[in-house]
Nucleic acid binder design. Structure first.
Lengths: 353, 353
DNA sequence: AGCGCCCATGGGAACGTTCCCACAAGAGGT
DNA sequence: ACCTCTTGTGGGAACGTTCCCATGGGCGCT
């Protein structure tokens, strides 16, 4: 019953169906110039023997591997997992296979992975660049799409990211509507573009409202729960108590802020309000639930895949797509006026504007 | 400066280095029978021109694609993302590429992905089987390793999973130590093996302690937050108030249980204690933090990869590896004796034993 | 009825690599 | 000095597919 170890080839199928390998190839690849009857027969034989065309040989011959590479920081990070999932779903529709690599924010790893992808002869790559190391991409000039906020540094390549300006506007509109017109800002660490993009968006928003960032509490930190917790402790120390709100540059920091509030013996949202940005699933279960600006992770992956397909097809156009964020309202953001008096924190920063 | 679109081949490199393609191949593949001097020269030329051997051609010729397939339910699920990461890290050490596919718990998708992997000529597969559809694996007899609790249904194939019996023992030991000798049990839904494995482990534990499951509140549910929340509401209804503890068959349900406790106006852990199993990151930020039995997701992936490599190498041995779980102590599990009186729930079930 | 044309098919080359075998040159033994 | 053994190298076949080109038969057109 079981076939011998050696898998059968298209020549075997051709013989079994009584045609040449060329005809069998035409039948299986869905070419036009073949009679319906022959096509059926070949398909029947192939099906019967469980034959699958060798993708390697196919790729080698026609120069298309049907694979694309995806380099992200870490698949175990929920945001990037969602991006990957979006890309995979979009790719799966044409039978394209996605090769996922984790850079771990390490330029050297990124470079190694790039080489591996070139070796594997992927048809294109989607990269969240760690640094300015897109040399490899441009060097082998392979179709590429950039994802994430750092894409802005490479205007020559198409890119997809979340619309941080719009997302920040969403968040600040909500904060302002709730009466928090001088929120503290928690920022991530230095070199990556994300920090820059975020604080610029905040600045632009304030400018549009005839104000400046002067007087706002802006705390530098890092993109982790622990760092956010520590940073928030510093904020609370600086601000005193009162109807304070904080807008963190990612959900991890926001969750840390939640913990810091509790550490200080304060309540959220009664004493301090917290707003995050990302949309991490953990925000659903914190107490209170984290109100946050959710980035369209899955759509970013899907859209990047679409753009890449266009690039591979040679239809140029290096678009820079920014996808809209959405607000997820949970319990961590209260109302400033609900607090008895205009608190110290608000008064403290208010007179600078 | 920039090379023409057509990437250069080993023949070009050979010519440039003044050797034959055979020699160039030997130099690049690290074969032994070649002079050190020639090897250096070829390598230098290859490096200079940014040449990368065509992995497709390589694979086609020597029958090894250097790729393995990984079929998991969903990469966007943190547990499976961790498994994937573990497998990737282990694979990366030999330059093996991991192809990740999401079955979404759908047998039809699983089958499609299996076919895609066969087509891509992967050297082996790691599968978390949705159902009994391992026909495809056995049909094409490709080296395979199973992961997850359903592996037990396919004794002929090597497998890796978490040691549920040990994990449940860990959890119940803790519950018993805290004075909860009759915890309620929240179970996931039917067809999958996980439910069976879990409840059997619980039964075995009780049996070892000279008791039976009779009288325990066992609530059937599904593996989601919403389902866990609803199921916990039913448990609370049945049990009345008191020093109740609940052991859920996954963290999602446990998080739902936390919400249900709050819905009912009760406090955790003062009134009700909750224990989960999985180790989902969201459990860190719930209020209180979720005490849980964490499954060794990353190690499962890594170990499965090792086993698969052995299987590919032909070193048979279909081991069934079970990796130990660990306890993560957070706030959701209290102490029964801390409650004023022996509560109604405990008394209710106690007399059945 | 004859001519050309299209359609279905078959044969061979090619994709880029590795493997097998042959061969030359030098070393070492009798 | 001859034979053998080793070491480095080159030439060709092979992996399984698709593409290009050639061929033959049927059909419509003049």
């Amino acid at each position: 019953m079981k076939k011998p170890r050696q898998s059968l080839t298209i020549v075997d199928i051709a013989q079994l169906a009584g045609v040449s390998k060329s005809t069998a190839s035409r039948a299986l690849s869905g070419a036009t110039n073949i009679s319906a009857e022959t096509r059926e027969r070949v398909h029947a034989v192939a099906e019967k023997h469980g034959y699958q065309r060798n993708h390697l040989a196919q790729s080698l011959r026609n120069g298309r591997s049907g694979m694309i590479g995806l380099i992200i920081p870490d698949i175990a990070n929920p945001f990037w997992a969602d991006v990957a999932r979006g890309a995979q779903d979009a790719a799966g529709q044409n039978g394209t296979i996605v090769l996922i690599f984790n850079s771990d924010w390490d330029p050297e790893r990124e470079r190694q992975h790039m080489r591996a992808l070139i070796k594997a002869r992927v048809d294109g790559v989607i990269v969240n660049p760690v640094h300015d190391i897109i040399d490899e991409v441009t060097r082998f000039d392979i179709p590429a799409v950039l994802i994430g906020s750092s894409a802005i540094r490479f205007p020559a390549l198409p890119s997809v990211g979340s619309d941080i300006v719009q997302g920040v506007r969403l968040g600040l509109d909500l904060l302002f509507a709730r009466g928090f017109t001088a929120p503290a800002i928690l920022l991530g660490q230095g070199p990556r573009q994300a920090r820059e993009t975020f604080i610029n968006a905040v600045g632009r928003y304030f400018q549009a409202h005839g104000r400046s960032l002067d007087g706002l509490i802006i705390e530098d930190s890092a993109y982790s729960v622990a760092a956010g917790r520590a940073a928030m402790a510093r904020v609370l120390h600086r601000a005193g108590t009162g109807p304070l709100a904080v807008f963190a540059n990612n959900d991890q920091m926001a969750l840390g802020a939640l913990l810091a509030v509790r550490d200080a013996g304060l309540r959220c949202p009664q004493d301090v309000s917290v707003l995050g940005i990302d949309g991490t699933p953990a925000g659903e279960f914190s107490e209170p639930g984290l109100t946050t600006v959710v980035k369209p992770a899955r759509q970013i992956g899907a859209r990047a895949m679409q753009l890449l397909e266009r690039a591979i097809a040679g239809e140029a156009g290096n678009d820079h797509v920014l996808l809209a964020c959405e607000l997820e309202l949970r319990g961590s953001l209260g109302v400033a006026s609900a607090v008895a008096a205009t608190g110290a924190a608000l008064a403290h920063v208010g007179n600078h504007a």
